[in-house]
Design a protein around this nucleic acid. Structure first.
Lengths: 156, 156
DNA sequence: TCCTTCTCTTGACCTAGTCAAGACAACGGT
DNA sequence: ACCGTTGTCTTGACTAGGTCAAGAGAAGGA
């Protein structure tokens, strides 16, 4: 199962180029990054890469099914290499940290909308908003109350 | 239960102004609108209202719990007056149309992430992506295949 | 090696939205 | 009814994040 990035690019009908390999390299090392961070990190390997090239590469990777784009409200789009499985995300309201989370029950009943209003649904996107471990600690240290007092459970 | 906008604004600790009433009026007539559409529509009632005033008013309304802001990926933020209940949204990939949908099972099991990775979760946001009835018809007419062939069911 | 085609670079442009300063209006007190 | 305080609106500059188009350059098949 030794599938290299080169193979995967070719399988997706994409040419193998230095910018693309650099971007894939960065994505492999960082689970959820925005385009700007990718550009900065990729420049360490391939100094001449332009921000627009990164956008182009990312669009190609997403189009080819090698990467996935997520767009949390109130922040830049993030990219990840974990594709094909049905996983969702935990997003920290404070620092924007993102963690993957598997759906507890797969194609769950609540993910089939009760009244579809004539829509044909093909994807259910779930984002859990909250506070990451680090920001909980930071809040407690600043006397903003305990982290457990922040919400009254999960609103669905 | 005759609660006027004026009452609601005061209850939220907000002053009652013409721009705010205009915006509330527009929101009452359109379930999901972006700031620009609100500005255009509000100008019919209050011609001198500025785009920035609309942003300010919307921020105040959201802060006061009179409106809710939703930010579907790839589009401007939308605002709605339906607040306080736990409802989600169906978004059309083609035309951006939005429909409300109640969660089928309330605080459902799948909305409690299996592994929270140290996060304290206070909200679960669900967006169903698909094709609205109108766009299904439009696709069929243009020979892009049947609408029912677009997705293989709901991915969770 | 050559040629075609795709991809990258460069640079202009765009949307959606924020921030700051001052004019103005709302509303509590007299 | 008026006045003063304070919150809100107008005006205008500015920002982030991202798209679009044209041409230079590299990838890969013949």
């Amino acid at each position: 199962m030794e599938t290299t990035w080169e193979h995967r690019l070719r399988n997706a009908g994409l040419r193998v180029t230095r910018p693309r390999l650099s971007v894939l390299d960065v994505l492999a090392g960082h689970p959820h990054v925005d385009a700007d961070t990718i550009a900065t990190a990729a420049r360490a390997v391939h100094p001449s890469i332009s921000p627009q090239a990164v956008y182009g590469v990312l669009k190609a990777l997403v189009g080819g099914g090698l990467a996935r784009r997520i767009e949390p409200a109130g922040g830049p789009a993030l990219y990840e290499l974990r594709v094909g499985d049905n996983h969702h995300h935990l997003v920290c309201r404070e620092c924007g940290a993102v963690a993957d989370v598997d759906c507890a029950v797969g194609a769950a009943p609540c993910l089939t909308p009760s009244a579809a209003a004539g829509f044909v649904v093909d994807e259910a996107e779930v984002v859990f908003w909250g506070l990451c471990a680090d920001c909980q600690v930071a809040r407690r240290q600043h006397g903003y109350g305990t982290a457990t007092a922040i919400g009254e459970g999960v609103g669905a």
